[in-house]
């Protein structure tokens, strides 16, 4: 079991690095998109408030939560492998 715990700890650290990288990148992308959208014209109001509001929307969006797949997908893969290998 010790080996299993060690595997989970290492995997958690590695996946966390990927998670942080992806969330920073995606936030940056979302901001870029908002800026481009505003600069294309046709949007009323102040540029900063528009972007701030868009980012607040992004904060609670499904798109942001999908990055959690970085943890969920490997966990599901390992669980499936354990089931298929040992119980099927």
């Amino acid at each position: 079991m010790i080996a299993g715990i060690r595997l989970f700890v290492i995997a958690f650290v590695v996946l966390s690095v990927i998670y942080v990288y992806l969330s920073i990148r995606q936030r940056w992308q979302a901001r870029n998109e908002l800026e481009a959208e505003f600069d294309a014209g046709g949007v009323e109001g102040d540029r900063d408030t528009y972007i701030e509001e868009g980012m607040r929307e992004y904060q609670s969006s499904l798109r942001r939560k999908l990055i959690l797949g970085v943890y969920v997908v490997p966990l599901l893969v390992v669980a499936t492998l354990i089931y298929v290998m040992n119980y099927m």
Binding site: A3, G4, R6, L7, V78, L81, I82, M85, N86, Y87
Partner: peptide
């Protein structure tokens, strides 16, 4: 293979 490499997660050797 247990929890190690390669990642087959095989524990049922005796079975």
């Amino acid at each position: 293979t247990g929890w190690g490499w390669p990642p087959y997660f095989k524990f049922d050797t005796s079975n």
